[in-house]
Design a binder for these strands. Structure first.
Length: 673
DNA sequence: TTAGGGTTAG
């Protein structure tokens, strides 16, 4: 038998036992001394999953040439054993064997997987020493190693020095920038690539699609789509899924849906991409409908689609659906950390913080995001102390990041824990060396200003290294409004106007501040600006889930079939409340109307309609969960306290910022919000 | 014989 007679045998062979037989024949016919055949045998053992035999054979070779080393290294790489890849590489260098292109490529990939930048750089030195720095395979591997280890600065240095760059090198850099959140740099690099006369392929387009979503540039996405059609690039399921994802992330749900509907064969990921698109854009009902359609079409929802669906449940407070997803997940035994965290978030956002907590307590291991989530959940429920306790436990187990402190500071701010806020902001900067972001500043400014410490809040804003944005000035202004601090308030109001807010509510705050300060001209100017920009106050909207169905109420909505009953109940309640000492707070009606009309308007507030509907359609004692798209109105807040006493019910209101738990005439926020 | 790619919680 000659050597090449074995080739077809190797190619088709997937069983370790068979390979051993071939191995034996080769030994007896004296062919194993041939280097190529040994490498092939090693690869065959590896392909059959028998790395032990592969390594045993490797150990027996008296004079190991580079092919044998490579066969072993590639075998470990294919079996996803990066540690072993590096070990064999080390041994090879130690024995004085000169690595080649394949060795370096695979070894660098292993460092990338291990996120071992130090070892990767050591290998790169060896690459230069052996004269392989101009090899495009090795080059793109080192670029990828730097990129995936989060070091684009070093990647670009290597890239600029490269003498030859093929399409893979360019792609590596483009996707590297995209995945480190630098979409603009990715697009710039693509333009450079075009100037060099390179033609982008499908993988480059995938990178650009992600860049488009990254920098919210729909036009870029559309041009990528057009390019793919013009050049007739193959549109496989991955390509089309990426298009769906790109359009969805850019908020173009109609186009995303159109691409999705036209797909000849969809997979689980395509479904997930669109479901998450709907959920992220607040189109919760569409997201949940699509999840059902996905199952009807014979697809089993995976973690990604379930997580997105849970996010949608939180949006519309669909506790019933959220619970059924929980049940599904538990039955199918697909619970993992991501899903558990999403469930915790869902229960908390649906008002059931205790359910969230018990799920959290039962988790065997908790990652950073899980801790951040539970801290944030306690924050929005106004349990600042509990959030702080959890944070204290967390910091012994896992290193907190910027998001942890954002969640903690916001929790402290919801609970008015001023001293703690100052302290932990300080700890974040000085001990954890985390540079405070706009969000961190906004939380602390909010906390200080609401407590009346507007001077300190102003100084904090002035101390910011970056230009203060809208969030901090708005926080300062609302504190000044509350405490009637006119001088600093005026400063804040002017800064807010300079930054040209897009939110009508912000203008209303500025106008109200000027009005309260009797600066009528300024107030009028603000109202005029609003009118000119065509801005209208967002209409108040509340929702309540009754028997698993979501019912929505707009302010003053008379069209509801039960409207008569709702109003009658509200009138009866009002009479009882008045007997208990309630006086309507008509200052919350910000229009110039007769007192009597104002009172009537308060009665038509959407949260009141939702509460009354909930009371009418649930059995006595049932807890109600109300959602509101704006902050809860001050008068409704009083009214809900009274109602909780009269009807002996727990009423939970989730407004746009936080939760209010009303029970026995008291709100969990302690009237501080 | 070795390099680049899609969805997912705060």
């Amino acid at each position: 038998m000659r050597l090449h007679d074995f080739k077809p045998l190797f190619l088709g062979c997937r069983h370790s036992a068979l390979i051993s037989q071939i191995h034996a024949v080769m030994v007896s016919s004296g062919l194993l001394s041939h280097g190529n055949s040994i490498s092939q045998l090693i690869s065959s053992y590896a392909k059959a999953g028998d790395l032990e035999s592969a390594h045993k054979l490797f150990d027996k070779i008296p004079l190991r040439r580079v092919d044998s080393w490579n066969a072993m290294i590639i075998a470990y790489s294919k079996s996803e054993c990066p540690v072993e890849v590096v070990n064999v590489y080390n041994q090879m260098v130690l024995e004085g064997v000169k690595p080649d292109s394949s060795t370096f490529t695979v070894a660098l990939k292993a460092c990338m997987i291990l996120q071992d930048l130090e070892k990767g750089e050591e290998i790169w030195e060896k690459v230069v020493e052996c004269g392989y720095e101009n090899d495009v395979f090795v080059g793109s591997s080192v670029l990828n190693m730097y990129a995936k280890c989060g070091n684009m600065d070093k990647a670009i240095v290597v890239f600029e020095k490269m003498q030859r760059r093929d399409i893979v090198c360019w792609t590596t850099m483009i996707t590297g920038f995209v995945q480190s959140g630098k979409g603009k740099e990715a697009v710039d690099l693509y333009r450079w690539m075009q100037r060099e006369g390179m033609v982008g392929d499908g993988v480059v387009m995938l990178g650009l699609m992600q860049a488009s979503a990254n920098i919210a540039d729909t036009k870029l996405g559309l041009s990528v789509h057009g390019y793919m059609i013009r050049r007739a690039l193959p549109m496989d399921v991955n390509m089309l899924t990426s298009l769906v994802d790109m359009y969805a992330k850019n908020g173009e749900l109609e186009i995303a849906t159109r691409v999705f509907r036209k797909m000849p064969y969809r997979n689980t990921v395509s479904w997930s991409a669109l479901i998450s698109g709907f959920a992220q854009n607040g189109l919760a009902v569409d997201a949940l409908q699509l999840l059902i359609e996905m199952q009807v079409s014979g697809f089993t929802p995976d973690v990604a689609s379930l997580v997105s669906a849970l996010l949608a449940c939180s949006h519309v407070v669909s506790l019933k659906l959220g619970r059924s997803i929980h049940g599904y997940v538990a039955r199918k035994v697909i619970m993992d950390q991501v899903l558990s965290t999403a469930l915790i978030d869902m229960y908390a956002k649906c008002g059931l913080i205790s359910c969230a907590r018990s799920l959290y307590d039962h988790m065997s291991s908790k990652d950073l995001i899980c801790w951040n989530t539970i801290i944030a959940c306690y924050g929005i429920h106004g349990h600042g102390r509990e959030a702080l306790t959890l944070f204290q436990q967390m910091k012994h187990k896992i290193e907190p990041d910027h998001a942890t402190f954002a969640a903690l500071l916001s929790a402290l701010s919801h609970s008015g824990l001023v001293e703690e806020g100052r302290h932990w902001f300080d700890v974040m900067v000085n001990e954890y060396k985390i540079k405070p972001s706009e969000k961190h500043y906004a939380c602390l400014v909010d906390l200080l200003a609401r407590a009346g410490e507007v001077e300190e809040a102003k100084e904090l804003i002035i101390s910011m290294e970056t230009k203060p944005g809208l969030a901090v000035w708005v926080a300062l202004l609302s504190g000044c409004h509350k405490h009637k601090k006119l001088l600093i308030g005026e400063l804040a109001a002017n800064r807010v106007l300079e930054l040209i807010p897009e939110n009508a509510g912000t203008y209303v705050l500025v106008a109200n501040f000027f009005a309260a300060a009797k600066m009528w001209d300024e107030a009028a100017v603000v109202r005029k600006v609003m009118k000119k920009a065509g801005m209208k106050k967002v209409p108040g909207y509340s929702g309540v889930e009754v028997n698993g169905r979501h019912h929505a109420f707009l302010m003053g909505d008379t069209s509801h079939p039960q409207y008569e009953q709702i109003i009658r109940l509200l009138c009866n309640l009002e009479n009882e409340m008045k007997a208990m000492g309630y006086v309507p707070k008509t200052e919350f009606v910000l229009q110039n109307l007769e007192e009597e009309v104002k009172v009537k308007m308060l009665c038509n507030h959407s949260e009141r309609l939702a509460i009354a509907f909930g009371l009418l359609n649930t059995t006595p004692g049932t807890r109600l969960l109300i959602t509101k798209n704006l902050r809860v109105c001050g008068d409704c807040h009083e009214v809900t306290k009274f109602i909780s006493v009269i009807v002996k019910r727990e009423i939970i209101v989730r407004d746009v910022k936080r939760f209010h738990h009303f029970k026995d005439g008291i709100c969990s926020c302690g009237d501080y919000w």
